[in-house]
Design a protein around this nucleic acid. Sequence first.
DNA 1: CGGTTTTTAGCAAACGTTTGCCAAAAACCG
DNA 2: CGGTTTTTGGCAAACGTTTGCTAAAAACCG
Lengths: 356, 356
Amino acid sequence: MNKNKDVAGEEPSGALMADVARLAGVAISTVSRALANPGRVNEKTRAKINAAARQLGYTPNAMARGLRVGKSNIIMIILPGSLYYGVSQIIPQVLQSINKSLIQGGYNLMIANLDRDEISERHILDLAFGGSVRGAIILSSKLPEVDGRSLANSGLPIVSMLLDMSDAGLQSVVTNDREAVRDVTAELIRLGHRRFFYLAGPEGNYHDVERYAGVLEALEAAGLSDELVRRSGGHLDYQHGFDIGVQAADDFAQLTEKPTAVIATSDDMAISFVSCIQRGGLRIPDDLSVVSFEGSPVCEFSSPPLSTIEQPVEEMGRAAVDLLLDAIDQRQKTAEVRTVIRSRLILRESVAAPKS
Amino acid sequence: MNKNKDVAGEEPSGALMADVARLAGVAISTVSRALANPGRVNEKTRAKINAAARQLGYTPNAMARGLRVGKSNIIMIILPGSLYYGVSQIIPQVLQSINKSLIQGGYNLMIANLDRDEISERHILDLAFGGSVRGAIILSSKLPEVDGRSLANSGLPIVSMLLDMSDAGLQSVVTNDREAVRDVTAELIRLGHRRFFYLAGPEGNYHDVERYAGVLEALEAAGLSDELVRRSGGHLDYQHGFDIGVQAADDFAQLTEKPTAVIATSDDMAISFVSCIQRGGLRIPDDLSVVSFEGSPVCEFSSPPLSTIEQPVEEMGRAAVDLLLDAIDQRQKTAEVRTVIRSRLILRESVAAPKS
DNA sequence: CGGTTTTTAGCAAACGTTTGCCAAAAACCG
DNA sequence: CGGTTTTTGGCAAACGTTTGCTAAAAACCG
């Protein structure tokens, strides 16, 4: 916002609508209308205004517009505390997908990082209550609240991604964790596997509950006992996936009756587990089949190439933005609070029939 | 921004400063001063105001403040077109580091994605010229320009990260690409390697120029010919690292005189190259030593664990924010346009002395 | 051509906060 | 206690854009 009113000509200069009006010889409100409501302004007048705006490199001041209209053009995305894990590209994928869709809808994307401390929760609530943002997409997190303020009470349109909060009435875009893991477990059963090793995320975590339930459902559907599956992990969060996998390799070494198939609930766990197991002399998939969850690109170049359930992150991002923009525009496009976008199993060389 | 003026009491309600003033029995300007310039308001009055603000859950409207003060509290980060690669965690690391530092400085972080098309370039320039953002950090990209508007001419404080633009007068935070690659090449030479295979990023790209120059410097310092190094790649961008590595494995297979050491300029290239080479029967590091650049976490769990040069991304993010905030506050903290933060070589099992 | 209807431009106020200025109140000092 | 200085609260205008309303201009029609 360069206030340099003395510069005339083609120089970009942070011109105001008032400058455009002066140059075009019309009122400020006519400029506003010509740009935002062209049908309300005579074509000849409009041409004059557009030429003046172009000459001055006029760019509207979004703060002024937001204040007058009472609506910001910013959407915040609330991200979980730690933005990076091991090989996961979920955050970059989500950001790119969402940003692209938002820009097409005329919005800008702001990052709000939810560290689960007071400072970051207050930051998010300030954005919501101060009118700075027009809506929120929240990724794998509960809604923040502090000082008697809760995001749930802010009146802000919100869409949850990855974490199903439809029970609480929150529009949610999720993938079919349970079904996907059930199907891959069924595939392992079909191959002949009867002993399973499950590498768990944090106990009670939505994703872990869903994924483990998928394993149990597949066992039940095959008429098998749920005692055929052993758990490792449960204490660390997904961002410590490598550590979970390393510990799981130790746990595995302690088992007298060795499982023949590993169901890891993140690519990180699988990768570090496989690395440690192989250093102990075991071979994948000859001695042990391995599947994981997430679909990180590097799985294709693991040794051996890792079978994984790929989450449809970009599609989910687009769906989340669509739902959010509908909520902002108060369009009732859909009665579904819960939108499920299916994950896809990618079978690679890490899975084979057990030896016997 | 709920305009519900009829609700009194503890209910969070998007209250205005005018509401706080009414409840505290003072003027609006006194509320403003009590919150922003406490020394200008009597302690008793201030207590009344703070209590009223707390009771109403008052949150300042950043758009109003920004408009009046003439300064936004938003910083944009301009990210390269594709946000995700293979195993790189640079984007999440940068975002987390920068966001944390900005919040401490009272700023919010907005994403601007530079796709190198008109729409995204115009989007960035609108943010800059419209006063929506107070500064910019640009990551691995040149400054956008379109329609006679250039980010360089916007008057906006800008810091470049990863790409050295200090020649153009732009504050730049970079790492020592050249020196780091020179040192790792020198280490390979010290181990006895005399034939090298260099997996290149895009020809002419700043990073590739620097890293390849490092290789040549090490050869020269050891009195060796630069003909001892063969290049592969040069056509694809870093985000296609896996593809570069796959193609490099083909190129390697064509070489009659096999190099004994590979210098890959990204972890993705190294990982996919190693995967393909191993499937062809070669062993790492017995037949071929491998080093790469970037320091992605998964390198520790590769087979074998991959030696890599780790970039100090978080520290660079912090430095970039410091420089940007200094420029915004017009503090002349440093005369250095170029800030170099050193990368660190992590030697793992992928590097050994050549067989003979 | 004159009366009626539609289109168009512009005035003025709004949005929520900040800050210069002034006057009143409080504090200080001999 | 009175004069002087400092502190404090409040008025009013500013920020850049939008939009309701009105009046004037243009278009329409018999």
